[in-house]
Amino acid sequence: MTDRRMTPATDRVALSSLRDVMMREIYTDGEPARVSVPVADLLAQPDGARDRQLNFGADVTIIEKRGDLAFVQAVRDGYCGWIRQADLTDQRPRITHRVSAPATHIYAGPDIKQRETGFLSLNARLSVVGTEGRFAQLAEGGWVPLQSISDGFASDPVEAAESLIGTPYLWGANSRQGIDCSGLVQAALHGCGLACPGDSDLQRAAFAEVEDMRRGDLLFWPGHVAMVCGDGRMIHATAWQMRVIHEDIDSAIARIDAAGDGPFLGINRPGREEISF
């Protein structure tokens, strides 16, 4: 069965690459666009629930426009869904940096006393066109602190995940304002330049199962994922505490099993497939 989350097609329009795979009224090569707001919801249906979120600077391919929404496929992980057209722009200057801090503000000018005009989360993609003092100027307008951005990827997914400790749990979310279990894992791996699907079942299917447990491995339950930190601990975004926390692995396995949310499904090791900056 085709997984709608990863299928770039609506009930009437599909990407041209699917021409010999599924029947649709219209086939299109798609239209490139970029997320222009701090965080945008990706909906399962035009009037449906949030599946995931896309952060500022995420590139997408528009497949169909319908009313004030557009059906898109995210370039980085292939996830598909409906997004507000107002949250997209056709302006796509060259990406030079990413937000490397858990979050940062956009300022009206290169001064911390200036009024903030926006909020950006870890891994937001930026086009820096200049610097002044301790600030970088964005092509889209506004300034961000140089301390909060990087022109490269991090090296340790666990450290990237741990930078989001305390972030509120929010189902289907992908930002410092709110994040869920699979969003945390994806943010950690993307922050290190590694490919990662958006949902926990897709992550489990994408990565090889292993017997031994190492730092950075992923632990899976039905509908849930955590990352191994070492020393018997894991990190995860959990509705149990409604935030990103550390937890003892053995205790977590027992607690989740006792709550009827098990069983523990096993350990998978993220691959080394790289993503573009």
Rank of each mutant, 00 (worst) to 15 (best):
T2V: 14
R4N: 07
T7A: 08
A9W: 11
R12Q: 09
A14W: 02
L15T: 09
L18G: 01
D20L: 11
M22C: 13
M23H: 11
R24N: 02
I26K: 12
Y27R: 02
D29C: 05
G30T: 07
S36I: 14
V37E: 08
V39N: 10
V39I: 11
Q45T: 11
P46T: 05
G48M: 08
A49L: 09
D51L: 13
R52C: 08
Q53R: 08
N55H: 10
F56E: 00
E64C: 05
R66V: 04
D68M: 14
D68P: 09
A70E: 09
R76Q: 15
R76V: 15
D77E: 12
Y79I: 06
G81P: 06
I83M: 09
I83Q: 00
Q85M: 13
D87A: 15
D87G: 00
D87R: 00
L88T: 04
D90L: 12
R92H: 15
P93V: 01
T96Y: 14
T96R: 12
T96M: 03
V99D: 04
S100E: 08
P102S: 15
I106M: 11
D111T: 06
D111W: 15
Q114W: 04
Q114T: 15
G118V: 12
G118N: 01
F119T: 12
A124Y: 04
R125G: 00
L126E: 02
V129A: 00
G133E: 12
E140I: 00
G142P: 04
G142S: 06
Q147M: 10
I149F: 05
A154N: 07
D156E: 09
E159K: 12
A160F: 00
W171F: 12
S175L: 04
G178K: 02
S182M: 06
A188D: 03
L189A: 10
G191N: 08
G191E: 07
C192V: 04
A195W: 14
D201Q: 12
A206C: 04
E209C: 04
D212S: 11
L218E: 05
L218R: 02
W221P: 03
A226Q: 01
M227I: 01
G232D: 02
M234K: 01
I235Y: 06
E247P: 01
D248N: 13
I249T: 00
I249H: 01
D250T: 13
I253L: 11
R255I: 08
D257C: 06
A258V: 04
A259G: 01
F264L: 11
L265K: 10
G266A: 00
N268W: 00
P270N: 07
G271W: 05
E274Q: 15
I275T: 08
